[in-house]
Structures are given as C-alpha cells and as structure tokens.
Computed example of a mutant assay.
Amino acid sequence: MTTPLVTAAFRSSQRNQCYVFNNEKYVVLDYGRGFDKKTRVIGGPIHIADGFPMFANTPFAIGIDGSFDNDGNDTFFFKGDQCAKVDFAPDTGDSRLLMGPISITSMFPDLNANTPFATGLNAAMRSNTGKIVFLFSGPQVGSFDYETRRLEQTRSISDAFPQFVGTAFEFGLDAAFNTHDRNEVYIFKGEYYAHFNLVTSEFIGFIRKIRTDWPALKRII
C-alpha cells in the first residue's frame, strides 16, 4: 500500500489556484496550466485548524479525505464517516460552517451502509456535465447527483475510467480536484499524479511524479 503524498485537494475561488493537503497541513498554490512545474506558493504551510477555524476540535483538523463544491459557495468536506457543509468564502474571511460534522449517511441518506461511501471516501471530483460528482472509495466510483442527492450508479474504476487500467489510478485515488476549466482534473495516487480531460477521456501529457513537478509542495510532503 502506497503512502499518499497528497491526501486531499480542491480548487480555490481564485482562478488557477488550489488548496493541497497532506494530513493536517495544506498549502495554497498556483497550479497554472499545461506542463509547467508548480512552483508558486500563495500561502502556507497552514494547519487546517488555523486556516479553517470551523474545523478546530473536529476530526477535520487532522486531515480531509475529499471535498466537492456545488454551483454556489457551498463545499462538502469528508473525513472518515463524517461530512460537513461549509459556506466557503476564503477571500472574504466569511467562511462558516453550515452543517455538521455529521455522519455521511445523515448528510446524504442515499450514501447508506449498502454503498462503499457510508464509511468514507478517498477523493471526489465534479463531472463535466450536469450536477454529477464522482465519489471514489477504494476501487469503486459512484456517480452522485448532488442536487437530487441520489447515488445514480456505482462501478469499478476500471469500468468507469478504462483509461486508468494499468496505471497507478486503477485501484483508487488519494485525491483529485477539478481545474477552473471543468473539463479537466488533476488526480493523485501515491507518488504519482496526472492531468486528465473529462471530455476526451484522455490523459493530458504523461503520468508523472508529484515531487518532480510540484515543488511548491515540498514543505508538506
């Protein structure tokens, strides 16, 4: 089993910026575009409890497993079997906890004990269409409609993303985030990452090592 270098990530409200977590610390960085190395740190390292004071004295203070945003400012965060809903407005200083932490099954009853997501997830990323978010738990991925809060389908990663077969991502992800071009995502597993196009279902460039291409993370990995 590989040790994650990136345990969670999500895009900032500022274009080409993202939050990247390794356990209880994170940095905000400029992920740019294309094949440029990620060298520019906007902020951090910061402890989660300092940057997100609503998570102090909660399970989220020691790490985040995954998150996704809706079409507004609301972001859902996951840690173990817990979920929290946050009005995420970091640039105004007005971020606030709207709900939770509560169990995932209380927040989203369709993610019940009959699904692999009731006890937690490893990563989440928005689809490029509709209100669908992909939830990853081990080798399983679910298509979840965050507006109706219905789990539409659960498949193996190899069925949902056949391009991942034979790669570091075939049996699970550690983290993922959508870029500000929602057709594209970055995915992370162990020491590797990739840039992926959701429309063409193709990797953009090659699968590469995080430590080589993301030097901005050197203070947390």
Rank of each mutant, 00 (worst) to 15 (best):
M1A: 13
T2A: 11
T3K: 15
V6W: 06
V6A: 08
T7Q: 02
T7R: 11
R11T: 06
R11G: 05
R11P: 00
C18K: 00
N22P: 12
N23K: 15
Y26D: 00
V28M: 07
G32W: 10
R33H: 09
G34W: 14
G34T: 15
G34V: 14
D36Q: 08
K37N: 15
G43W: 00
A49Y: 07
P53Y: 09
A56W: 03
P59V: 01
P59D: 02
A61D: 12
I64S: 07
I64D: 03
D65T: 10
F68M: 02
F68Y: 04
D71N: 12
N73S: 06
T75Q: 02
D81G: 04
Q82T: 01
C83M: 07
F88K: 07
D91V: 10
L97I: 02
L97G: 04
G100E: 09
I102T: 10
I104S: 03
S106W: 06
D110I: 03
L111N: 10
N112C: 13
A113W: 05
N114A: 13
T115G: 05
G120R: 05
L121M: 14
N122Q: 12
N122H: 12
A124H: 03
N128P: 00
G130D: 08
F134N: 07
G138A: 08
Q140N: 11
V141A: 08
S143T: 08
S143N: 12
F144V: 01
Y146E: 04
Y146P: 00
E147I: 13
T148H: 09
R149A: 03
R149C: 01
R150I: 15
R150G: 03
L151F: 07
E152I: 15
S156N: 15
S158Y: 09
A160R: 14
F161S: 04
F161Y: 13
P162E: 07
A168P: 05
F171V: 15
A175F: 00
F177A: 02
F177H: 09
N178T: 02
H180R: 03
E184N: 11
V185L: 06
Y186G: 06
E191M: 15
A194H: 09
F196P: 01
V199R: 11
V199T: 06
S201L: 11
S201V: 07
G205A: 09
I207S: 10
I207C: 04
R211L: 06
D213N: 07
P215A: 09
A216W: 05
A216E: 11
